[in-house]
Write a protein that binds this DNA or RNA. Sequence first.
DNA 1: CGTTCTATTGACATCATTCAACGCCGGTGG
DNA 2: CCACCGGCGTTGAATGATGTCAATAGAACG
Lengths: 230, 230
Amino acid sequence: MYNQYASTLESDPSCQHSPLSCLCLEKDIAKRLSRQYRRGEALFYMGDKFDALYVLSAGSAKSVKNTVDGNEQIINFHFPGDLIGLECFNDMMHVHSLRFLENSSVCRISLQDFNRTLIGSDTGRRFLLSKISHSIVDEQQLLLSLVRHDAEQRLVKFLLYIAQKHKQSPLPYQVFNLSMTRVDIANYLGLAIETISRLFSKMHAHGIIKVNKRQITLCNVEDLQESLLA
Amino acid sequence: MYNQYASTLESDPSCQHSPLSCLCLEKDIAKRLSRQYRRGEALFYMGDKFDALYVLSAGSAKSVKNTVDGNEQIINFHFPGDLIGLECFNDMMHVHSLRFLENSSVCRISLQDFNRTLIGSDTGRRFLLSKISHSIVDEQQLLLSLVRHDAEQRLVKFLLYIAQKHKQSPLPYQVFNLSMTRVDIANYLGLAIETISRLFSKMHAHGIIKVNKRQITLCNVEDLQESLLA
DNA sequence: CGTTCTATTGACATCATTCAACGCCGGTGG
DNA sequence: CCACCGGCGTTGAATGATGTCAATAGAACG
């Protein structure tokens, strides 16, 4: 019961293409922005005033932190249904920049609407709290990979994660297109780009996955999952 | 204004020893548990029903995830003022075990009270949202260390983080006792315990820090902070 | 008083990075 | 149309940081 929205997002076919629509219909707190964004565009920059949360309704994006040495660090990737901006209630400023990886659209949730939902609707509040928990847990999963897994395991976990995020897509979820470059993946996983490239080649040669440019096919999901346990 | 509670926790001397007291006094949502916990005791275990959040009011603790291979992974450490349990709204179960590192006490916030505060009090809601953001950002900081820093930088960042958490203590904050073992630190930072040991020895020899068993002295905090930027 | 936990140190092995060269593709301008 | 260029990706060889294995010793605890 508590969990109804989270699970709805996974399974209810009516939500397949826009999980947010549940939320939109339900509580009308997110308003679809008319504007579409293109690959490379930014929704906001680190340091901007925080005046709304967003839900990604289509496409994909990355949260990027600019480090002192002039480089970027990708904090996470976002996919349809992800709630963006939860880390900003501390300073009321954006602590990342958000950059789209492909043509995308978002729903905007003003802080006023956010608060109103938190206050006024039991199911809305549960939904939002569940989203908050989910994003914390996702982050901890990445943390776990970085700490306990070697390069190949990190990449496998990453691919499984991406596949998971594509479960709403019409394609079989074992087949998907990466919207990010190898550079992005390497950055995110804390590896050198050459390592990513070599791993793709090796795993392809071993028949574990198929790699064709950015299209990935996971040949045996269960085997991959098991390989993480070793 | 939005930020008043967060900053109060840092600076208001009346909150020095129990940051939570702000919250207790303010909204009466957290009730100090009479029971004190001892080193090694658990507050809850992974899989337990999630029926309350906690604020650590004294001592320290670790959140631990049991991995499939029978090992543990420390997800984070907790210090006075930290809000514990935010990751549980998804499944309404605890996803970590919480284990105290020294004699400690906690304040319990029932879900009912939590919701009531979210609904009923503007300042309480802001305070809680700020806490949520803070814990997400903390986690991302660790993530950044793991991805971008080598072993020494990770350890330095960890020590600065601990020092930061001890700013409320009567001691000068450059001097503190680690409540966790070398094993815990290694586990948390994704390093071998021998690496931690060697780094402590090396940094001690170089006069960067002083190490005496578990007591650490940071000889020059600014130098340490700068060393992270390189 | 032994057993276990914690910590330190050395020798060696290994995985991932770094440096370097190269190819492919798409866009842009002459 | 072709030439050039920058971004993206692959592969090889050498280097180095960190893990692993092993030995030792003090501290904590029953």
